[in-house]
Simulated scan of single mutants.
Amino acid sequence: MPTSRKNQKSTALVVATPATDDRIVAVIRSASAVARIAGSGGSIEQEDGTILVSDRPYITAGGLTIDAEEIYYRAEQRTSSARRLGEADKVSWLDPETQLECIMMRAGNGGFLGGYVGIPPSHPLYGFDRNAVPSEIDVHGGVSYSAACQATPSARPSLVAEANRICHPPVRPKRTRAPLDAAVHQPHRDAWWLGFTCDKVYDVILDDAGDRKRFLGAEIGGTYRDDDYVCREIEHLARQLKAIADGEPMPLRRGAPAPPLGLDAKRGA
């Protein structure tokens, strides 16, 4: 018996049209968000309110330019404070200095950002649980995430799923109008991801400003960790992971120091 229209799932999909600025503004409805997307070319797709801009550089609030493979804006984050700041909800890129895959991604619950770096099977820390990662790795709040590439839900994953997945971007022909399809999608299971999240006691969570558990935020200098801070932390983590793989000394920080781990009661002094 045919499925009635009212029982069918509605999926509004725009297949990889050229990513002109006018087009991005029309879809995202935010000039501040578009201000973070530089250059020209690339493509744009939309599915159920989730928007993907491919092959366009992303500029953080502090002016750091990321040669992004994918920039996502999620439907559920449309009304958040982060959207008013113009930040993306997920940015994926290959770090040119370390050749490691990197992801900045916003949590669906709370709206805080996190950063993730994928390492190959040849890396000494491949497969390490987050609690077994060497303590000399210096990153915001310490390494709090460790996992293999998250499984691809289907041969043709939705943009909504991809916007929430910590894994390599799907393989697509560069700067074309090719849709996300089984013919070009290659699932990856060979990376191990290490990461951090900015939801500690010394972090301000934009969508959780009234959380009484964070009453010490003002006393210890709590602040919102924006896309600039997080992307620089990601790059610093990538450089440290490369140094470990190469047997080299840990690199010096190039930006602001991370808060002392002792400020987080869950980790102890």
Score class of each variant (00 low, 15 high):
137 I>L: 15
136 E>R: 13
129 D>C: 04
117 V>G: 11
125 L>A: 08
105 M>W: 00
128 F>L: 14
138 D>Q: 13
123 H>E: 09
146 S>K: 12
108 G>V: 09
133 V>L: 10
140 H>M: 08
110 G>S: 10
119 I>N: 07
117 V>D: 04
111 G>S: 15
117 V>A: 10
113 L>Y: 12
108 G>Q: 12
106 R>Q: 14
125 L>D: 04
130 R>H: 14
128 F>S: 13
130 R>L: 14
129 D>K: 14
123 H>N: 11
146 S>D: 12
122 S>H: 05
115 G>V: 06
115 G>R: 02
108 G>M: 11
142 G>I: 05
127 G>C: 12
131 N>I: 12
130 R>I: 07
109 N>G: 05
126 Y>K: 01
141 G>S: 11
111 G>I: 02
136 E>G: 01
119 I>S: 04
138 D>I: 13
117 V>M: 13
118 G>R: 08
144 S>M: 11
110 G>Y: 06
109 N>I: 15
114 G>M: 02
110 G>M: 06
136 E>W: 02
113 L>G: 00
114 G>V: 07
141 G>W: 01
133 V>R: 01
141 G>H: 02
129 D>A: 14
135 S>F: 09
134 P>D: 09
135 S>L: 14
130 R>S: 13
113 L>H: 02
114 G>I: 07
104 M>S: 02
112 F>E: 12
136 E>F: 11
119 I>K: 03
122 S>D: 11
140 H>D: 06
137 I>M: 02
129 D>I: 00
103 I>C: 06
116 Y>D: 06
120 P>K: 05
137 I>F: 01
138 D>F: 10
108 G>N: 12
107 A>Y: 13
115 G>I: 09
140 H>S: 09
107 A>M: 08
109 N>K: 14
134 P>E: 09
112 F>R: 00
127 G>E: 12
116 Y>R: 15
132 A>E: 14
137 I>R: 03
143 V>R: 04
121 P>M: 09
127 G>Q: 10
123 H>R: 13
142 G>Q: 05
127 G>V: 08
121 P>W: 04
103 I>G: 05
107 A>K: 06
133 V>T: 07
107 A>L: 04
110 G>R: 05
112 F>G: 02
119 I>A: 01
120 P>H: 02
127 G>H: 09
139 V>W: 03
108 G>K: 07
143 V>S: 08
106 R>Y: 00
144 S>Q: 15
108 G>P: 04
125 L>M: 15
128 F>P: 01
137 I>K: 03
123 H>Q: 12
126 Y>A: 10
136 E>I: 10
114 G>K: 01
138 D>R: 12
138 D>T: 13
127 G>S: 06
119 I>D: 05
126 Y>V: 06
119 I>M: 06
105 M>G: 08
145 Y>A: 09
136 E>P: 00
117 V>R: 08
108 G>C: 00
143 V>T: 10
103 I>L: 13
145 Y>G: 03
103 I>N: 11
127 G>Y: 09
115 G>H: 11
122 S>Q: 12
109 N>H: 14
113 L>D: 00
144 S>V: 04
136 E>Q: 14
114 G>C: 07
120 P>C: 01
114 G>E: 03
121 P>Y: 01
144 S>I: 03
140 H>N: 04
132 A>G: 07
146 S>M: 10
131 N>C: 09
130 R>V: 08
131 N>P: 00
123 H>P: 10
118 G>T: 13
132 A>F: 14
137 I>C: 03
121 P>I: 09
139 V>S: 06
136 E>M: 10
104 M>I: 06
125 L>K: 05
103 I>D: 00
